[in-house]
Nucleic acid binder design. Structure first.
Lengths: 241, 241
DNA sequence: CGACACCTTGAAGAGGTTCAAGAAATGTGG
DNA sequence: CCACATTTCTTGAACCTCTTCAAGGTGTCG
């Protein structure tokens, strides 16, 4: 057993609404708590799991911030997503019983360890849990559709605008500000995620600041004009058609 | 009920190995056949489902070839994948009970309609089916990781090489040639998928042909030098490190 | 046969990358 | 607490890849 393992109760977790199905009976809730056997601390800069490692659990993020990245044979790295509290990582490992990407904590983090065979076992008996698992996987597929769309058809400014809006929207859903955020990742990591070089990310930040759309001080970003960002992502059609 | 609905038996389907879990008892197999209630014909150029439509079934492709594409609010289109016999479409619809992309037949096709509530019901009872469903969803997540990697970190030649290798590999797994393929999609659709303009796709095809890596005659492609394609995708490290 | 969709190719241009230098923050050890 | 090393970020200039615009060729189908 992992040295960082800690016992825990879902029913008293403030992320319940994000992690768990709705409308569970107390009995079902109690059974699900048995699935979420332990927690695990993941210090900043360390891996939750590595590409190639055997898969045996999904992880629900309790606190902290992660990136997931895949790497090609020739060593190129690609960030596939940034994950925050209430989100689940590890779904990629189910198909081959091995993780196929790296998950790295970008700040000190804590996750709930959910052994996957236990999840399968229990979701045969608790319908709401079964459907919840299906939805989580489907949501990840749809999220990736969005990333593909961004990478395939947006230009640098649109990508960065979409990125900022997405981050701030997810943070707001967790009770943080709609207009202010602290980036937990480097320009290079943002660039990798957006399919851009770090210099382009930096320049685009500067341009947004020049245009009074945002204020940037290193990793602290304040959004001054949300509508302008939204307009960048969905360029208005040019004139009446 | 759909006018194109037809009764069918999985146990006699030659795609059984692609669609179904392995090691099923005859009894389980029979129950799963009840899930795959009907087939549906999808003529070339028509939609299997539209973005926004209510979700109620997954579709296993029996014959034919599909593209799936998402579209942004301002009308931009992005192809997220090409699907062939034995592959499953519709997973994107689970999370919101609505399809979030379009599925279009690129040639006359036939699919098995699998109502999702029936899938959930039965996978509570047949463990192998449950795990199979999870693997199919995880596989789609991993596939999209690959697309993200391609769009985020490859250049035009690498993308097209990766695309051709992927297509021919999947076709070969279905008993077709390793070196010859008939493209079912236009240059524009390839370009959308690869995040390139159709002219770039065309030019890159021509370059590969000049380099004697492939032969191209419209949509007929013959691969002359698979190793050269692979080398393009995984550029050899420059000199000993 | 003619209309239409699809594909190819050229030339000019834009957007992003690369290379390079320096500034700002962060961490480390004395 | 300060000096120093390291990492991260910014900015400029030259370059390159891919896009855009344009024209013509090829194939297909009523």
């Amino acid at each position: 057993m992992n040295p960082h393992a800690i016992k825990v109760a879902c029913s008293s977790c403030n992320l319940r609404e994000l992690c768990m199905p709705v409308g569970l009976t107390d009995a079902d809730m109690q059974r699900i708590e048995e699935v979420v056997a332990t927690r695990r601390k993941v210090p900043k800069g360390t891996h939750l799991f590595h590409n190639g490692e055997p898969f045996n659990a999904l992880y629900a993020i309790r606190t902290g911030f992660f990136k997931t990245c895949v790497s090609s044979e020739d060593g190129r790295d690609q960030v596939t997503g940034f994950q925050m509290a209430g989100e689940v990582i590890g779904l990629d490992g189910i198909v081959s019983d091995r993780h196929t990407c790296d998950a790295v904590a970008l700040e000190d983090a804590e996750v709930c360890v959910m052994p996957f065979d236990r999840i399968e076992e229990l979701s045969r008996e608790v319908n709401a849990l079964q459907h919840h698992v299906h939805k989580i996987m489907s949501r990840e597929i749809v999220r990736e559709h969005g990333v593909i769309m961004m990478l395939g058809s947006m230009r640098a400014e649109e990508r960065l605008a979409a990125f900022l809006l997405n981050l701030v929207q997810r943070l707001h859903a967790r009770g943080f500000s709609q207009s202010e955020l602290m980036l937990r990742m480097t320009r290079e990591e943002i660039g990798s995620y957006l399919g851009l070089k770090l210099e382009t990310v930096s320049r685009t930040f500067s341009k947004f600041a020049d245009d009074k759309i945002i204020e940037v001080k290193q990793r602290h970003v304040r959004i001054l004009n949300t509508d302008a960002l939204k307009a960048l992502v969905n360029p208005p059609t040019c004139g009446p058609l």
